[in-house]
Design a protein around this nucleic acid. Structure first.
Lengths: 254, 254
DNA sequence: ACCGGCAGTTGACCTCGGTCAATTGAATGC
DNA sequence: GCATTCAATTGACCGAGGTCAACTGCCGGT
């Protein structure tokens, strides 16, 4: 690598990864000292996106991975017919863009749900640094793998859970992820619309609306537009797993 | 790396990756010559599994990735209640086990659907080789990414498609993957049970059965137990996308 | 401060696919 | 070769959640 990139002044360092409040969550977890410094050098740009702005779209050439610094985004797939399926919501500290590694172009679209700021990790630079810092490669794969595991959970929800469980799991998941960001763990501000939530859960907006109403009526939570306050975290947790009246087991056939 | 592993005799080489009929599909795509030789050395074991045998289960320590040489496997998630969701079917040339990278232990279960043979890629060895052969790291990430993309398609199916489309997409997908393995492209032997198919698609077995019957009645295919012959690939392709009577578009809200 | 538009809610109705139950038939064991 | 078993099919019924439509109330713009 060119030595110019490795030698950093304190100023640059302060503005970027090493001082990022989220650096534990983002890539360099497990990477310290000089390695971190190198990684830091690979992060070229910080961008901000307005609500509704597109970070990348289906077909775009793959240049970089992106870390959410603040705000939130959704990624989704859209077919020819215009049908769309939201794949994930991305909160601060999380990384987007892995789906483009396979074909060198993005196969999904990423859009900001609110005013957000993003770190760009140019992939070519990332690979250069990785060659010097083997730990980075492994860390990258760990992060991709974590994303796969999250998608597995999403899949189970879609395949097996009834509507109310889906919403409960969704909310619980948001609570967990925001708690991780050391926020108040019982109140949420939903940056996504009811349409987005419904779509993500494989439901329609009316169903989501009714479920919010029902959960409010049963005292689980208090909801007012985008703000949700969990009143009974215990009840919410219960709702996350189907309480089969008859404990109907799913087969375990060959 | 220890030099003993790099020096291979022709015999060993012939038995393994370099001569594997599927080597284009599996890991070393884009890796040649000495690099391939090194990779080959990292592949320790070939195992065979009987139908129903478990390759790894939830909680197992992560030691290796696995390549299917012949036969087929399913991977699935199973929760405390015994509910289970099949995540994927794995055909020859495909790689399993990436979900374990995140936590260093498997978080799903893999089971053979029929007599199968498997290449084991010990992860530690793989990482050693990768440090010498940067291309391998990138290729590995490409493969994980490809798997993620496939899972996205699965997700869309679960979230948006009605039952018949799901089965059509499933069959089309199998046809494509087997065509890739240069088999007869209009007849399939389903190694998985109807229960497995139903589960994978988020349906119940009765629905799958009815759909097979209907597709047979409409002349799309001929089905007899595990064997399926696609009579009208064109019709099958049509069934893969919902033909909205009214071309109802899914919203594209903020 | 009023208006327009769209996010969100609510209600009435209907449909797709799930549930339950009976039957068929292919494989495996004695 | 017959019985047992379980995968698969078929039919009758039902209900969770989708569809359609009407309404409410925020929010943003001028």
């Amino acid at each position: 690598m060119d030595s110019g990139a490795v030698i950093l002044d304190l100023n640059q360092l302060r503005r970027s990864c090493a001082s990022c409040a989220l650096h534990e969550l983002c890539l360099p977890a497990g990477i310290y000292g000089d390695d971190l410094r190198q990684l830091d050098a690979a992060i070229r740009d910080k961008r901000t996106l307005e609500r509704g702005a597109t970070l990348y779209r289906d077909g775009d050439a793959f240049r970089a991975l992106y870390v959410v610094r603040s705000g939130s985004l959704k990624t989704f797939l859209q077919n020819e017919a215009g049908d769309l399926q939201i794949l994930a919501f991305h909160l601060p500290g999380e990384i987007l863009g892995f789906d483009a590694l396979a074909s060198n172009q993005h196969v999904s679209q990423a859009e900001a749900l609110e005013h957000s700021s993003i770190c760009e990790l140019p992939y070519a630079r990332l690979m250069q640094v990785s060659n010097e810092v083997p730990a980075l490669h492994r860390q990258l794969m760990r992060v991709i793998s974590r994303e796969m595991v999250a998608e597995h959970r999403h899949l189970v929800m879609m395949g097996r859970q009834p509507a109310q469980e889906r919403l409960a799991i969704f909310l619980q998941n948001l609570v967990d992820r925001y708690a991780h960001l050391s926020r108040d763990d019982i109140s949420l501000t939903l940056s996504m619309s009811r349409y987005d939530i419904a779509n993500y859960l494989g439901l329609v907006v009316e169903t989501v609306s009714r479920l919010f109403t029902r959960m409010q009526e049963t005292g689980v939570l208090e909801v007012n537009r985008k703000s949700v306050r969990i009143l009974r975290p215990d009840l919410l947790a219960e709702l996350c797993s189907t309480q089969h009246p008859v404990p109907m087991k799913r087969h375990d056939h060959d």
